[in-house]
Design a protein around this nucleic acid. Structure first.
Lengths: 292, 292
DNA sequence: ATCACCTATACTTTAATTATATAGAGAATA
DNA sequence: TATTCTCTATATAATTAAAGTATAGGTGAT
């Protein structure tokens, strides 16, 4: 039994005659007769009662028609689903997001979702080392990261935006409430909660060096390993932190804000990173090539 | 997309390589490569990641395989169902049963059901004229009847058994409780409930003629048009009736029994009747050809 | 009885599929 | 590094399946 035989058969049923079906199918009449005969032979069943007034279904033919119609359209739907996966409009993309890139990741994801609502997005927030390991293992397809990680050699990166690194504080811990920019000497006695990320980025070192140049070492009351914790500490009044400025957007209306430190102009790039070696599904291709 | 392409594709997936699949399919390797390529071309999708270590599925290929396996076995199941209808082991047979043939119909139906449990039996009990009309209209496929109806010309009949026509009575209405066979004179003053079936069978007439020969006419207190009603009347003590003897089996343990009338040897045949002209489904063929 | 219409078969032509032979790519081994 | 092995892809020939053409046979209508 072939799909073509089923299609011919259904056409004959719907038109009520082989001749009419052959016209609809744009083929001659004998091939239709022949395929029907082959089908009957294979099934060992008469599908039609032949009469001069056309072809009437037998019981077996009735059953074949009812099931066959669905069967044919099932194939078309099946093909359509596979096609959709091929063009990437359907599928799954597995993403890792570094907390500090959330302000860049979210608009990107929103725009992508609007463009390709059929693509499922799996999103994991974590530390850069873990995310990179999962990317290389193939568990993740792309990462929202900060530029400059050692392990990102061999990865493709696309810059999504840049942040000035600024001092993050609350009104209570602001070392210079009366000024928009904080002179570096004001940091002398300010407790600091710095992000320690195995030196993924050097801007904490740069800040400390600047302080040293000014003749003091700030008191680092806490070194934490993830941005959300640093933010929590800042919000709770433990001290100030030194982070990409847009991070404050992840906790809006929470009394946290950012100010530049005079003479310190460190900068950080938020990037989308992925591995172009190895197999990449159509939806992943689509995701990394996407421009919001 | 053809079934063959799907089968080749699934074989490649299961064997992990085109070469191995071609061996399993008993064809050369190039045709398999080619059909896969055609499938990919039609779907506009890469289904495999080609590597020297074999063929690995892409996301689209994964989806096609999961759905394709089911799709292929669906076709096999579909064909099997149609085949079953063709051989008659599945399907529907619509039957008409004359009440007085119930003792013959029931064992037949029980045996057929045991042999072909997949065949649905639709059973209607009714008057012979109605049943014959429905048979000719095609609403019924076969009838359990009494032989000798005028309208059965052109029908095939098969005799299922014969009944002596006997007097049906209860202990209270028995005209000769002391005898096993009733002398015809005893019917002189006995009220009778006779079945009037538009003279479908002549045995009532035969009985009345015999009475007339004996010099009397029995009192026919009721002429009813269906056997169950006649039976009800007999059971209620309205009178006796004159029916095929095995009819008493349809109301066992009800106090009804049959006795011969001396000198009256009418006989009736229970038959299975059907029309061999026109379309007859495989299960109907099976039913009429069946021997318990 | 002839005509019109429909299906089935015989035969030819065309298209699709398969088989054979072979090239090219990547991993394994010496 | 060169060699060998294995696997896939392509070119071309052979085969097989499908479609087209012509026509016979059957049934109902004019």
């Amino acid at each position: 039994m072939t799909i073509r035989q089923l299609e011919y058969f259904c056409a004959v049923v719907e038109e009520g005659s082989v001749s009419a079906a052959s016209r609809r199918l744009h083929v001659a009449q004998p091939p239709v007769s022949r395929q029907i005969a082959l089908l009957e032979q294979e099934l060992g069943v008469s599908l039609f009662r032949r009469g001069s007034k056309g072809m009437l279904l037998t019981e077996a033919g009735e059953s074949l028609y009812q099931q066959g119609r669905d069967y044919i359209s099932d194939m078309e739907r099946l093909a359509e689903r596979v096609r959709a996966l091929g063009t990437g409009v359907r599928g799954t993309v597995r993403l890792g997001v570094l907390y500090s890139t959330v302000p860049y990741a979210l608009p990107y994801l929103r725009a992508f979702r609007a463009a390709y609502p059929q693509v499922e997005l799996y999103i994991r927030v974590g530390a850069p080392q873990d995310l990179l390991a999962d990317l290389n293992r193939g568990d993740l397809n792309a990462l929202f990261l900060r530029a400059g990680a050692k392990e990102t050699i061999g990865l493709h990166e696309r810059i999504l935006g840049s942040d000035a690194i600024k001092l993050i504080m609350t009104r209570d811990t602001d070392p210079a409430p009366e000024l928009d920019t904080i002179p570096i000497e004001r940091l002398r006695s300010v407790p600091m909660c710095l992000l320690r990320s195995d030196d993924l980025w050097g801007y904490n070192q740069a800040l400390l060096k600047d302080c040293q140049r000014s003749g003091f070492m700030p008191s680092v009351v806490c070194q934490c390993y993830d941005t959300p914790m640093a933010m929590q500490l800042v919000q709770s009044g433990f001290g100030v932190s030194f982070l990409p400025e847009r991070i404050v957007e992840t906790l809006p209306h929470s009394g946290i804000y950012a100010k530049s430190v005079q003479g310190v102009a460190e900068n950080s790039y938020a990037v989308l990173a992925w591995n172009e070696n190895g197999y990449r599904s159509a939806s992943v291709e689509l995701f990394t090539a996407f421009r919001p």
